[in-house]
């Protein structure tokens, strides 16, 4: 009951957040001085054609009416049509989402697999050269801009070492050699499920650079968070007791200490997923990754307000959802939160 109550309360506040976001983005995108109808029809259009489009898009109505119409359509799952591609925004988003999520998950998996052990090692040997090294890595990871790191990696691994592909999600030859059968549109998963190893290898290689670039920031954050939490836990009495019992240090560190230290790290992971979603904007542009980020950047440059609204609402929704899931997970992992 308590869990249900909790979820309902969170859903209610989430609704408020989303309505707020929709109001702000809607009115902001409308006060930018730009003629959406003229953009829609393209250059050199006749005035009467622009007026026709203005009517057709409902842009001749007062703003509050336009907002009501927009929200009405939104409730039916319709985010309107993009100005620059003329296609439904919902379709644009759903088509690109798998690419972005694939990148996001690959990045987050790298971040967790690298960040958590780094944090643990650094806490376990606090003050050692290892610790100094890890702290340095975290600072570099957190402070180096993704677009710079991405370019450096391209120069190193494509230009000089010729080990990894420059950009894109798959090699364009792949379709002729060993085409992917789409099932989930997570290409790595699809090629795995269809046992298409040629494609799997190609997709995997294409993922490495962008996912690592995306992971740099979360790695730093997660390593530092894990280190701090681990230090606190490792200094506690029950750890000393365990050590006195002669339990192996590996078991103590990973089984007893990490479990209690992971809660704050989990929050950080949840938040960085949402943060990394915006991080994909840079990464996707540099690596020409055909996902939501590339679409958003293009929409911004074209002042494509239905697309900007759609992506913003979608991002806000995702953010709220991830936060909620993280809260629930924490309650699951740490009984103390559940009992409170």
């Amino acid at each position: 009951m308590r869990v249900l109550d909790f979820i309902l309360r969170r859903l209610f506040t989430a609704l408020f957040v989303l309505v707020g976001v929709s109001v702000i983005t809607f009115f902001l995108s409308r006060v930018i001085p730009n003629d959406a109808a003229a953009l829609y029809i393209g250059p050199k259009a006749r005035t009467e054609d622009i007026e026709r489009v203005r009517k057709q898009l409902g842009l001749d109505k007062p703003l509050p009416v336009q907002y009501a119409v927009y929200m009405g359509e939104l409730l039916r799952g319709d985010l309107g049509n993009s100005i620059s591609t003329k296609r439904p925004v919902t379709q644009e988003i759903t088509e690109r989402l798998p690419a972005t999520l694939e990148l996001l998950f690959a990045g987050m998996i790298i971040a967790v697999l690298v960040g958590v052990p780094l944090g643990v090692l650094s806490a376990r040997w606090q003050g050692s050269p290892m610790d100094v090294f890890v702290r340095m890595i975290s600072i570099v990871g957190v402070s180096m801009p993704a677009f710079y790191l991405g370019l450096l990696m391209q120069i190193a691994f494509f230009r000089h070492l010729d080990l990894l592909p420059l950009a894109g999600r798959v090699d364009s030859d792949l379709r002729f050699i060993s085409p992917i059968q789409p099932i989930t549109n997570f290409f790595l998963l699809d090629s795995f499920l269809t046992l298409n190893w040629v494609a799997f290898k190609d997709i995997f290689l294409h993922l490495i650079l962008p996912a690592s670039t995306l992971a740099a920031y979360p790695i730093g954050l997660i390593a530092r968070m894990t280190r701090a939490a681990m230090l606190e836990v490792l200094g506690q009495d029950y750890i000393r007791t365990a050590q006195a019992y002669g339990i192996r240090q590996v078991v103590i560190t990973y089984m007893y200490a990490l479990k209690n230290a992971i809660s704050p790290t989990l929050t950080v992971i949840g938040l960085t997923i949402a943060y990394a979603l915006t991080g994909t904007f840079f990464v996707e542009v540099i690596f020409n990754w055909p996902g939501l980020g590339l679409f958003t950047v293009r929409s911004l440059l074209n002042v494509d307000y239905p697309a900007i609204m759609g992506v913003t609402l979608f991002g806000a929704g995702g953010y709220v959802l991830i936060n909620m899931i993280v809260d629930l997970m924490q309650a699951w992992i740490d009984p103390r939160i559940r009992l409170k």
Binding site: T90, T94, L174, I180, P182, F187
Partner: peptide, 20 residues
């Protein structure tokens, strides 16, 4: 996340841009 991708009206038809 997979649930997220599955929502939306276009999910019932295959996306236009699949590789093959």
């Amino acid at each position: 996340a997979m649930l997220l991708t599955a929502c939306g009206p276009a999910a019932t038809e295959p996306p236009a841009g699949t590789v093959a």
